[in-house]
Design a binder for these strands. Structure first.
Lengths: 241, 241
DNA sequence: GCCTGGACGAGAACAGTGTTCTCACACGAG
DNA sequence: CTCGTGTGAGAACACTGTTCTCGTCCAGGC
């Protein structure tokens, strides 16, 4: 009985070791992960690696799942450090967490938010963590709206089909909602705008699309993040009041 | 003399043929382009391909350059079809052109706006076409501002370092500018916001990040594009007037 | 205590990859 | 007519992911 447990423990240890080597390779070599090279560095012969992962794709899937969870975890931690009463600061905490993580792990970021891998269909495992950040942003908007901040997004009505999609999505909302001065779909639509802008911004920077263009990366990022906070009505009403 | 010209013509024809095969492979197989497979389909032996391209990377570079130009060209054509007097419609034309091209050429889009290729530094050739769309958007905003539309972006001042970066960029502006009720850097900052949002949006859709979430893709895209038009002050002042 | 079954690693093999080298040939310029 | 250059073919090398077979080792059941 302890034998079986011991075997299992060794197995997960080796699996962890392989993943560690793979992560290191990803960081140094970039996206082209060589199974054989990973095996070498893990002290294994290539075929032995197949005892732990069905294929290179399976190894990548594990890395992708890890990446999603690491990113979402770091976002959640950052948000948790800011009180609910400051939705603008919470939004900025999300932005900075995503940016910092992406810049620290560019290859992993590319794996989860870059071009999809060839012949690779994202397993169901990954949709939940991918949506977590969107949920977090939505939560911030809800808190902000409940606290009487300005209604997000100037009255641009949602197309009916989109309203339907978003309504379907609101079913995933885990907890009870406070009373809101607007339909939840509208909040979700704004969250999607912020979400898109955030990952567009981070993607541009980590993928080098800002090279030779913006030097003051951090200031630029902050500015754009605050502009989006304004758009979402998270900031105190601007200077016109 | 005609001999030399003839040889040159044949050479560019074969180069074109290779690129065509490569483009077709990219469309059907996805991002993992096999040099040998391309050579096969072009009726060549692998080594012969090296008479035309120094390496697989060089072939990819050619494809990337083509893709940038094709995208920028289709954007320019779309914008040219809308009169200057309708900046909102011009912005939407840009959006639709990018989205349509991306959905029609997902692999090529991934090549130019997805995760950067390993060991691949974008050659200088590609920065000009990459910035063309940003210039186009800036032009639309300038026209809109000159025509007396609402000032884009509620007064959120630019950080000095960013202002400096953007000021440096305005040197690239090719033609003379009309008188503007605001500094050009502010317009450029707004253009960057739109640019980021646009490619974030298109990237999310073409890379499948909207799967199982938004069904009404086109309506969703239009909505977000209009929201950004509102943000940029391209639309007539919203319902609060 | 022995036997057995299953997990594990090693090694060889296969098909495929990008790249380089050498060799043969064609053909226009002199 | 010869020479040189541009071109394609073919073999080779070092890789890659994957599969198969073969020993080995060791816990669990008898």
């Amino acid at each position: 009985m302890s034998g079986r447990k011991f075997r299992e423990r060794v197995r997960t240890e080796i699996t962890e070791e392989i993943l560690g080597v793979a992560r290191r390779h990803l960081a140094t070599e970039g996206a082209n992960l060589s199974l054989r090279a990973v095996a070498r560095d893990a002290g294994l012969v290539p075929s032995a690696l197949y005892r732990y992962f069905d294929s290179r794709e399976a190894l990548l899937t594990a890395l992708i799942t890890e990446a999603y969870e690491a990113l979402a975890g770091s976002v959640d931690a950052a948000v948790a450090a800011v009180p609910h009463a400051r939705p603008d600061e919470r939004w900025l905490a999300v932005c900075h967490a995503v940016r910092t993580w992406a810049l620290a792990h560019p290859a992993e970021y590319g794996l989860i938010y870059g071009s999809p891998l060839p012949d690779y269909a994202a397993p169901r495992q990954t949709v939940a963590p991918a949506a977590r950040i969107l949920l977090t942003v939505t939560g911030i908007l809800i808190d902000g709206a409940a606290d009487g901040h300005r209604s997000p997004v100037p009255a641009r009505p949602l197309p009916p089909a989109v309203r339907e999609d978003l309504n379907r999505l609101t079913a995933y909302w885990p907890t009870r909602l406070p009373d809101l001065p607007m339909p939840l779909e509208s909040v979700l639509a704004t969250a999607l705008t912020l979400w898109t802008q955030l990952f567009g911004l981070v993607g541009f920077e980590t993928f080098g699309r800002l090279d030779d263009m913006i030097e003051a990366r951090r200031d630029y990022f902050d500015h754009q993040a605050w502009v989006m906070a304004d758009l979402a009505g998270l900031t105190s009403p601007p200077t016109d009041a």
